[in-house]
Amino acid sequence: MTIWYAVMALGGMGLALGLLLALASRLFAAEPDQRLEALGGVLPGVNCGGCGYAGCGMFAAALAAGEASVDGCPVGGADLTEKLCAILGVEMKKNTRLTVLVRCSGGARARDKFQYEGIGDCHASIRIGGGPKECPYGCIGLGSCVRACPFGAISVVDGVAVIDHERCTGCQACVGSCPKRIIVPVPYYADVNIACSSHDKGGTLRKVCDIGCLGCRICEKVCIHKAIYIEDNLAAIDFEKCTGCGDCAEKCPRKLIVDAKLDRGPRLMEG
């Protein structure tokens, strides 16, 4: 008998409260943006703040309001960007996903000014006469960026830092960690890239590095889309115009230009 009392008492309360909630949901009904739920569903929900908003809910609201960019979530990656584009009805642009590139191919191919033996950190080494490399623009290769990457996407190969573009989420934590500021964000889908930051004239550069950009303008002349140009002795690419045809990469005398998708990295010297 006590069970019946319990059932009726609690069941009655449930009934009453259900009614209350139902009425409240009608009275205080707000028309939420239908997309918010869908957006919330695909966002990772960890509220890490990497997008710059206070949580995934806020990011979704900003997306729906058109204030945030679809590639703002560093955790989700390209897959997430695709889903967000689908929900928002936005076309996914080719340069939407970002990754980073170390603008240097030197490393073992760049001359050393002196032999450095000290704290194994790029910031520490540049205190001593600007660092052990002759080229003032180049990668020192002691790995400050390696340690800054929370996803383990950077490693030092042959004295120069190299990005694993599959692990890279575009969070750009490494960008600030490089004392030479040669890690830059680039579109993930870019087919061509210049992996050099040196503004030295050709003659000087030949003395300090075997692979750096001389500013010889051959690529500029070869490109039919006018997508590559020399600025201050250094080649640069306009990604809006670049079609990835690879002509510049073929004609570059230094074999510097990365002529394939980023993840193949700069070409290693043969022999």
Binding site: T2, I3, A6, V7, L10, G11, L15, G18, L21, A22
Partner: peptide, 19 residues
């Protein structure tokens, strides 16, 4: 449905606890 689910849930819980 809101009312039904809540009422049912509480009733079943009460019955279970009674047992």
């Amino acid at each position: 449905n809101l009312i039904l689910v809540l009422a049912l849930l509480t009733a079943v819980t009460a019955a279970g606890l009674g047992v």
